[in-house]
Design a protein around this nucleic acid. Structure first.
Lengths: 388, 388
DNA sequence: TTGTATGCGTTATCAC
DNA sequence: GTGATAACGCATACAA
């Protein structure tokens, strides 16, 4: 015989599912729901995961309401000192860990920024991450990192996951395969801010952070020319990437300005794995009319060129000048030192993080610049210094 | 004049907060809650984020219940073909994106595995990530990556975030600063499985995946000895890391087995940034009784040693043998080639991922091995090959 | 096969 | 200053 604890009725009691592993009842007379202490469902042991402390547990333990607990935990003003103290102590005692899922669901905000990068193998993205991480952490945001491994499919799946997890904003650098941007348009449609960086694209009206690839390449190639190199080859990245196209453009512009002929045979574009860099490098250095300098789209390829040259007994910088891009750590130490373009990687991380924070704050569509261009620096070392 | 749409009463209508930006009312007579179409709260425009389609929207659009929609979306069996079809079509039409937060909250499961790594600068962790990512994705899990940047404090904050976000499991490689493990014990207490890898610790009863650092180092040093090197120095990592201690132990054991004296002056342990590696390397090569070989705890330090040797005109391998650890990509190409220990990085990722999946499935505490040791491979190249 | 009603853990509104 | 209760979006036990 079960009595309703509220109206004490006994006639209209009905079973009403389970709650926290216990049989639940409803009194159809007074609409009161209740459980009976000590009763357990059969599968209780199995289905009940280790119970996580909730604010309700804290509330019960102290004998106050959960709203008060919530307010106390978040330091709202309208709360007495003692209550607040008691809540915090009990929270510690019960080892309370807030449930971010429930919080996010209620607030419609996750305090999480997603970041998708194509790879971790160069030090470029790790450094960007460090910069962004610091800014976001200070602002109270979490940074969730995913890597697309240069695969368009994985990138799609990553964006879907970011969407499902309701990231508040997205920082993304595209894979070299990406040439369709519908998966990013979805974010715009949903009002979730995006900032593209490094591997950006045209045709998408979102903020972009890049470096001055064109000018940097122009300057790098001009530097080679001014050092007396005549036949400058270019080992470029895949043309699907705008950075590759921009660097190629800078290369061509410098040649043109100084009246050097453009030899398409001395331009190779492609995805530069170590193996490919070696193959292309050997091709270049075996050309009948061998180039006397190489401008490579990244440092690892430039270093590969230097290694091949050494094997072939071609002296650097006298017989071959080499310039890379990125200023990897090892570039300062290899051979006579690799001349290269230093990119402000941490600053890029800081910039994209600050930008996304600003976009999150601005409810109104304040006028924002569409693109920020960070400045690089040409680091001149032994591999290109023929005149001195 | 407001009528209750259920009992048509007009006397007991009271305001009852806002719902989705609209004024909400309750009929105290029949306990029915309702809103009035067309009414809006003052701040409506501002607070109402772009509405995300929910299963309720789909249900309303078709005129069925949300539970049916839920079942249809998840392909439950007890659903008619037509209903299911209609739901899927409407979901596509309304551009429905499931809310993982709500899902996770209801299911008490996030389908997310967290991974915390100390750094991305060496190719080691990126490769582990690739291996783990593949396995987890196939199993329907998301991988959320955080990096502690070799900072204990960030590691703490990362684990707290993983906890708050209710990751189903945690894969973690510790920072070199970490020597307190309470933040990991919390996971055990909560029944959240952990797998430690690479940077592991004693004193924690959790699964660990490592490589055979001791044997690998032993073999590497023995290889040097068998090639006729007599005075072998060791450039080691910080002793707070077990990998450093194990590699040191292997080094000492090999010396002992072959009756070589142990010279503490020829052992340097520390965090090997490029700068530190250079400083320590110069110290070693400037010793009055200079070592004729160096066993370095990682490849970047070994390469640094090689570069210093070249600068000093010390020939490799004749005057100096060098062995590294990890088989970085560049190690195959530098100088005469760097002898090193190849670690099965992807396999490590695969292993930790499979292990955590297994731990998630096993409700019962099945007997699990406490530690898995993956096998390395000594890659012999020119830097140590004196006899041939 | 489908609908009803409730929980998941939190915040927020309103009433007191 | 505090309590009661709905909502956030989804899954599910049970009833129909």
């Amino acid at each position: 015989m079960i009595h309703c604890p509220k109206c004490n009725d006994v006639a209209f009691i009905m079973k009403a599912g389970y709650i926290r592993g216990k049989q639940r009842y409803v009194c159809k007379s007074c609409h009161h729901f209740f459980t009976i202490a000590g009763e357990h469902s059969p599968q209780d042991q199995q289905r009940k995961r280790r119970h996580q402390t909730t604010i309700i547990d804290i509330a019960k333990a102290i004998g106050i309401s959960n709203s008060t607990v919530s307010r106390a935990l978040h330091g709202h003003s309208d709360i007495s000192r003692e209550t607040r103290q008691a809540v915090l102590e009990m929270a510690a005692e019960l080892d309370y860990q807030p449930n971010q899922l429930a919080y996010s669901l209620a607030k419609n905000k996750t305090n999480t920024i997603g970041m998708i990068v194509p790879e971790f193998f160069n030090s470029f993205f790790p450094n960007v991450i460090i910069g962004a991480h610091q800014i976001l952490t200070e602002a109270g945001y979490n940074l969730t990192i995913m890597q697309s491994n240069e695969s368009y499919d994985i990138e799609i799946s990553n964006t879907r996951a970011m969407l499902a997890n309701r990231a508040d904003g997205l920082l993304i650098s595209l894979t070299q395969e990406t040439n369709n941007f519908e998966h990013l348009a979805v974010f715009e449609k949903r009002g979730i801010p995006i900032v593209l960086f490094n591997r950006v694209c045209d045709g998408l009206e979102v903020p972009k952070v890049v470096v001055n690839d064109f000018e940097a390449s122009f300057q790098a190639v001009e530097h080679l020319i001014l050092n007396g190199y005549e036949r400058i080859a270019h080992l470029g990245g895949p043309l699907s990437l705008m950075v590759s196209r921009e660097r190629l453009r800078g290369y061509k512009a410098a040649l043109e300005k100084h009246g050097k002929p453009l030899d398409e045979n001395m331009i190779i574009q492609g995805m530069l794995t170590q193996q490919k860099a070696r193959i292309y490098g050997q091709y270049l250095l075996d050309l009948p009319a061998r180039p006397d300098a190489v401008f490579a789209v990244n440092d690892s390829s430039a270093i590969e060129i230097m290694l091949i040259a050494k094997e072939k007994g071609i002296s650097i910088p006298d017989e071959l000048g080499v310039v890379g891009f990125s200023d990897n750590p090892e570039s300062a130490y290899i051979g006579p030192g690799l001349t290269t373009v230093r990119q402000p990687t941490r600053e890029m991380g800081v910039t994209v993080a600050n930008w996304i924070l600003q976009l999150l704050e601005d409810d109104a569509d304040t006028e924002i610049p569409e693109r920020k261009v960070l400045q690089t620096e040409l680091i001149i070392r032994g591999s290109s210094r023929r005149r001195e």
